[in-house]
Design a protein around this nucleic acid. Structure first.
Lengths: 338, 338
DNA sequence: TTGTACGCGTTATCAG
DNA sequence: CTGATAACGCGTACAA
């Protein structure tokens, strides 16, 4: 035993039973809202429990029931606001349901992934797992599907795993964005992308092409910059602007910020000469000059949806499904629509 | 029992004992690196355990030992990158030590705080708690000090609680920043603050005054903007610039961004006409135009330091102490020093 | 509606 | 160095 601090010993249901003059099982039933307990007994037991300051021992309960009332979150080590926002949504939903949230950092690399799945995961006191997967998704974690606890994936753009997942409307959201630009009279809409090995950017690029097709506008390769493994540089953005677009849709807000900077340097007025738009609605979007038109990613909602799906799988054995949370166009000054 | 999925039943040390031809206690000792176990026995037990795919049941272990190998993190619901970075540091350190991290969102308000301390906290399966306290620190959580598990506070600027805490050098860091501006020849350094009820901004303001005093420069109220409960507006920043500063030190990076915007609108060149600097080294600092000189907050280090302090308190009963992590001046183009 | 008896998986104690 | 025994706190058969 620890007994480090000389604090009084733990209060157990045995103590309550003694004080209330009933047996342990009766206390347990009263405390767990079982129906077959006398109303008067239940009340008395609860009063005594509160008086004695009893609280359940999660470990003992888990040992007996096999449930931990805890869900795990496997997430990359990052300080990107988007993942923090997803965690926000998850934490809010778990707290609302009286569940605990155990956060496990995911170290990159095959070795670390395998280590996690084979050694760390099985020993976790959790009822289910949410996988927050960055691009370059851990493939070994896929083994989870059939060996570990119920799991739900957020952002599995590649759909490589046979697991339920939550996604947002990247492609349709980007299409809506470009559609909006076209709707305000822009004819030469450029696309500034990046990291096309990333399925996110890929889907957004497809949404861009969808919108062009839909509007009967030609796809002009000169109006796209697509560095495969990074964001476009200022030089690349300069070349893009040299091709004469009247609007630039960026794959995410930070790229749009770069576009604004280059446009400013070259003396192009935004939005008069050039409309600029981004994607994600990051915290910096609203403070850009001019404030950036963008598409809000429903990160919090994705988090809470993942929790709900996971509980469905845990409690009702729901089969692998997927849930799509819609993005939302946010019109600000940079596109000239207002 | 759950037995939901027809997966094989859990492997316990009893299974290992049977397979290895020894008793349960011996298996336990072998698996826990007790000294009084024969080397050969230990090896054999370990091999069998690996072969059978055994892993410990955390709940059962906690029930017996009173330890959970888990620490709790109480943090506000936010997506601010700074808190995410602190969590990064905490998660990295706990993972390194084989500990688990249980994240508890802190809902604002006295009622929710009291609820947390009296109902949620006692039932958590944790050995210690890290309190990530936003401004307007929960006072009721202070009751933790003597009733709950060992706790460590991060960012308790007011030092109101009798708990160990981790802080960074806000005041000295800001003094260094202003000292740097003065060192490059600026004579009229302005301060753009905000939320002075917040101890952070207060300390930075004091650092600003320290540097002026040290340099023998007068404190001119016209060169400060100090909105009490928010960030300065563009109009307020315009008035500040009208007072003719040759440098502006902002209490945090986002304010500096606003200064850059206003300076640009008014046609002032940065850094030629006006040096601008911020504080925090947020992700947007390096992409501003020009890139922002600022002071890096050692968030990750603060997180890992908090874990170490907490473990000290848990394992060795270390008395309440405090630990200060130094900030670091980051010189970029906006101050003209290079 | 309530009580008796037991076991979940693990480790501490003690005897050998 | 090892084994027998008991106990951690709780919930669930089953019997009353």
């Amino acid at each position: 035993m620890q007994e480090a601090s000389p604090g009084r010993a733990r209060v157990t249901i045995a103590d309550i039973a003694r004080a209330a003059g009933v047996s342990k099982p009766t206390v347990s039933r009263a405390l767990n809202d079982h129906r077959d307990v006398g109303a008067a007994t239940r009340e008395r037991v609860r009063e005594v429990a509160a008086e004695l300051g009893w609280f359940p021992h999660a470990g003992a309960r888990a040992l007996r029931t096999g449930r931990h009332d805890t869900i795990g979150l496997l997430m990359p080590l990052t300080h990107w606001w988007g993942y923090a926002d997803i965690q926000y949504g998850i934490a809010e939903e778990t707290a609302r349901r009286g569940l605990h949230l155990l956060v496990q950092p995911l170290h990159p690399g095959e070795r670390a992934e395998r280590e996690f799945v084979t050694r760390t995961l099985p020993a976790l006191s959790i009822d289910g797992l949410i996988l927050l997967m960055p691009e370059g998704t851990p493939r070994h974690v896929g083994a989870l599907a059939h060996t570990g606890p119920p799991a739900v994936v957020i952002d599995d753009r590649g759909h490589r795993l046979d697991l339920p997942y939550v996604e947002s409307t990247n492609r349709a959201g980007f299409r809506d964005l470009v559609r909006h630009l076209v709707g305000t009279g822009r004819k030469r809409v450029a696309f500034a992308g990046g990291q096309l090995d990333d399925a996110f950017a890929q889907e957004r690029f497809e949404g861009y092409q969808d919108a062009l097709r839909e509007a009967g506008l030609p796809y002009d390769p000169e109006l796209t910059v697509l560095p495969a493994d990074r964001e476009p540089t200022a030089e690349e953005l300069g070349e893009l602007l040299a091709a004469g677009p009247d609007a630039v849709a960026a794959a995410w807000d930070e790229i749009a910020f770069g576009v604004l900077n280059v446009a400013h340097t070259e003396g192009r007025r935004v939005p008069e000469d050039l409309a600029v738009a981004g994607f994600d609605d990051s915290p910096i979007a609203r403070v850009m000059r001019p404030p950036l038109t963008t598409v809000r990613q429903p990160f919090r909602e994705m988090g809470s949806a993942a929790v709900r799906m996971l509980l469905d799988a845990i409690e009702h054995g729901a089969p692998p499904a997927h849930f799509t949370v819609p993005t939302e166009l946010v019109v600000r000054a940079s596109c000239g629509a207002r």
